[in-house]
């Protein structure tokens, strides 16, 4: 369950990273297709990041003498990571809902008090999640560090790969 939640969070984050990477590069007004394409481009590196993280998890699991204990250790690490990331994700979701469904005044509030600052603290939250996951467990730290660093690299990668200059 914890692994599924983390995978879901990572995929959503990767898609949003792709969207952010394209931000400020396409001046057109009607951009739905371009935005969806940017989100898909975020998933392109996001999936390998997840696959790499899963491979690291399987490796540390396979190297353990007591795989049951190691699995429980990783599961606990995953829940600690979720304890940091889920509240953040919840606030982001509420802010996005307000932005998309609210009037322009509510949307402005959602951007200024929510989505703007939340974007700024996102790297700190990811690092916090990695630290929490890896607290007292080198196996958890290895998996979390792989996933965390990878997910932070999605946006700059997509930006450099597809959105270096205005379209």
């Amino acid at each position: 369950m914890s692994a599924l939640l983390l995978v879901a969070l990572a995929l959503v984050d990767a898609a949003l990273s792709g969207f952010r990477a394209s931000g400020g590069r396409n001046g057109r007004i009607r951009r739905r297709a371009a935005d969806l394409r940017a989100a898909r481009r975020g998933l392109l590196p996001g999936v390998p990041v997840l696959a790499t993280s899963a491979a690291v998890a399987l490796a540390v699991l396979g190297a353990a003498d007591d795989r049951g204990a190691r699995y429980a250790e990783l599961d606990a690490a995953a829940w600690r990571m979720l304890a940091v990331l889920l509240p953040y994700a919840g606030i982001v979701a509420v802010s996005m809902l307000c932005y998309l469904a609210g009037s322009f005044r509510v949307a402005t509030f959602a951007i200024l008090a929510g989505l703007g600052p939340l974007t700024m603290v996102r790297p700190l939250l990811v690092v916090g999640g990695v630290v929490a996951a890896g607290w007292g467990t080198s196996a958890g730290a290895a998996v979390a560090a792989t996933a965390g660093s990878g997910i932070l690299l999605v946006e700059p990668y997509v930006h450099r790969r597809w959105y270096r200059t205005p379209l």
Partner: peptide
Amino acid sequence: LVAVHTELQRLSEELR
């Protein structure tokens, strides 16, 4: 300046 203005447009969009 075109690049900067394109980025600025993003802010204009977000603040509607």
